[in-house]
C-alpha cells in the first residue's frame, strides 16, 4: 500500500459517499445517470468475484464490500425507491450502455493477461470501468444546471483513477512487480475521458460560477 493508492481509494470512497449522501438525505437523484450506476455495479461484481475465495487483507475486503454494497444500493434507490425514482431523468439518460458492455467483453476475450474466467472477468471490469462514466458525462451535458453534489461526485470519481496512475508509477519504481500494461492503458483512457469535465469543473471553481458543460 502506498500514499497514492490510499488517496485513490479514499477519493473513490468519498465519491460514493457523496452520491449516497445526496440520494439518501435529499431523496433526489437529479442529474445522476442510472446507466453509469448500473455499469459500475457490474464493474464491481465482475472485479470482486473472488471476494470470498481469496483474502488479501481486511482493508481490501472491507473496501470491496463497501463498493459492492453502495453501487447496488444506489441502483436499487434509483430504480425502486418511491421518492428517489421520481427525480430520475430517464428521458435524458438515454445512453445505450449495454452497447458498451459487448465491445468490452469481446476485447477482454481477445486482450487479456491470461485466458481464464477470473482473468477475463477482471479485464472486462477494467475496460468497462474506463467507459462507465460516459452516460453520466452525456447526461451532464444535457442537464443545464448541475448541482454541487453531482459535480463533486463526478470530480472525485475521476480523481481517484488519476491517483491510481500515480500509484502505478510509484509501484513501477519501487517494486519489481508492477501492474500489467492493460491496467495502465484502461486507467489512462478512463482518466482522459474526464479531461474536459476537469477543465470546466476547474473553470467554474476558479471563476466561482455554476458548473456548466457545453452541449
Amino acid at each position: 500500500m502506498n500514499i497514492f493508492r490510499l488517496a485513490g481509494d479514499m477519493t473513490h470512497l468519498f465519491s460514493v459517499l457523496v452520491l449516497l449522501l445526496k440520494i439518501h438525505t435529499i431523496k433526489s437523484c437529479a442529474g445522476i445517470s442510472l446507466k453509469t450506476q448500473e455499469l459500475y455495479a457490474i464493474v464491481f461484481a465482475t472485479r470482486y468475484l473472488d471476494i470470498f475465495t481469496n483474502y488479501i487483507s481486511l482493508y481490501n475486503t472491507i473496501m470491496k464490500l463497501i463498493f459492492l454494497g453502495s453501487s447496488f444500493s444506489i441502483v436499487w434507490y434509483m430504480r425502486r425507491h418511491k421518492i428517489v425514482r421520481r427525480s430520475y431523468d430517464k428521458d435524458q439518460d438515454t445512453f445505450r450502455h449495454y452497447f458498451l458492455m459487448l465491445p468490452c467483453l469481446i476485447l477482454a476475450l481477445i486482450i487479456n493477461e491470461k485466458f481464464t474466467f477470473r482473468e477475463v472477468m477482471w479485464t472486462f471490469s477494467l475496460y468497462l470501468e474506463a467507459v462507465a462514466i460516459l452516460p453520466q458525462l452525456v447526461l451532464l451535458q444535457r442537464t443545464r444546471n448541475i448541482d454541487n453534489l453531482t459535480g463533486q461526485y463526478v470530480f472525485l470519481l475521476g480523481a481517484y483513477r488519476a491517483f491510481y496512475i500515480l500509484n502505478w508509477i510509484y509501484r513501477y519504481f519501487t517494486e519489481e512487480h508492477f501492474v500489467h500494461w492493460i491496467t495502465w492503458i484502461s486507467g489512462l483512457v478512463q482518466t482522459l475521458l474526464y479531461a474536459d469535465f476537469f477543465y470546466y469543473y476547474f473553470q467554474s471553481w476558479k471563476n466561482n460560477v455554476k458548473l456548466e458543460l457545453p452541449a
Binding site: 493508492r5 481509494d9 481469496n54 488479501i56 481490501n60 473496501m63 463498493f67 493477461e113 500509484n167 501492474v179
Partner: peptide, 10 residues
C-alpha cells in the same frame, strides 16, 4: 496463486 498478487488492488 498469481491471480491474487497480480490483482491486489481495488
Amino acid at each position: 496463486d498469481d491471480f491474487d498478487d497480480d490483482h491486489d488492488e481495488l
